[in-house]
Design a protein around this nucleic acid. Structure first.
Lengths: 193, 193
DNA sequence: CGCAACATGTAAGCGGTTACATGATTAC
DNA sequence: GTAATCATGTAACCGCTTACATGTTGCG
């Protein structure tokens, strides 16, 4: 039970990711949100409601510092920088030897019960998901992590993961969707009877 | 804003999944937990702390009925059955044309920052994840959804998904892990200088 | 004229996780 | 004896989501 070593950071949560982003240089919460949207969000989503409170906590605990930057025409920015204490906390976060990789799929849960759905419903659900996947693949093709601290090896590895897995997902769906709408023997019999 | 049509069920949450499981016959919360553990949990995890409250809510709202079954030696069971109202609610849950499919990966978030880690740390994280994947693949091979309402087409589709994607995951990691531990040019230079 | 982009935050709510609480029987 | 299986539940907590709140500049 060593617990909360440095200000409550001991795993990969939104706070830790924000710290990590700051190792590449200063940024505002708004900047980080864009980064979550473009690259990070595909495997680790976060909205303003997570990011701003995370930054506030990090600042309270001295893991980041910020300066208020006044802009003409645009709203003020709070530009954050990571501190030495923050770097240490980040290292603790990265030290977890068993980081989770969790899927929560209402999509698969729905299709598990495909036998309770109409063929039209199933087709719609699948077509929509395929469209999503294709959109994602197009996007990942366009900007390979521009405007993010993402030129490193890790970013490449993760982007490659996204591409590889999305393709595998698409292939699986396309090759196996007929399983779901194919009438079962019992139905054929009762239709004939 | 049609909202909460039948007692608050309009998407694929734990409640809806429990309803779905009951279409295959009566079951207790304990039974359902086993089902979540064996098959469902890989893409839609749930523990007792989710399941029992879910069943209580479903019962309060008349979507399921139960009878207390006294057993000798063993604790009492509450055996649940779905009601007509429950079937309707389930259909509403299944009617969502855009069910989510969400990944939250601390694993990928960690590796994004691989350049801040030692080669040993990276290797450990990856080896552990590979072991997990292999365990999963062995398990999915052994029991293709025994002891679950899972003989249907949907269950087969989902099990196939698990196998296909886990293999793709493993392949990607094995073929690309060297990207992460390979020294970058700058490091080589500074080591030489 | 309206909408998107810029920019930061709060508050309420919701759903899931974890820990706690209980207790008999069976298998090692 | 001690751990696992059977079996159900509550309560606290934690973290993320969503909605709300505010206000300017610039573009179409």
């Amino acid at each position: 039970m060593s617990g909360q070593q440095l200000a409550g950071i001991n795993l990969m949560d939104v706070k830790t990711v924000c710290l990590g982003m700051l190792t590449d240089g200063e940024a505002s919460g708004y900047d980080m949100k864009k980064c979550f949207e473009s690259s990070f969000g595909h495997f680790f989503p976060a909205g303003y409601g997570s990011i701003y409170p995370a930054l506030a906590t990090l600042a309270r605990n001295g893991l980041v510092e910020f300066e208020q930057v006044l802009q003409d025409g645009k709203p003020d920015r709070k530009v954050y920088n990571i501190t030495e204490k923050g770097r240490e906390a980040l290292m603790e976060g990265l030290a977890n030897a068993n980081p989770a990789h969790k899927l929560r799929s209402e999509f698969l849960a729905t299709l598990w019960f495909a036998h309770l759905m109409t063929a039209e419903q199933i087709d719609t659900v699948i077509d929509n998901k395929l469209a999503e996947i294709n959109e994602f693949l197009e996007m990942i093709e366009e900007f390979q992590s521009i405007e993010c601290p993402g030129t490193g090896q890790g970013a490449q590895f993760v982007a490659g993961y996204g591409k590889h897995m999305a393709s595998a997902f698409r292939n699986y769906i396309e090759e196996n969707r007929k399983l779901l709408t194919k009438p079962v023997l019992a139905d054929v019999k009762s239709a004939a009877g």
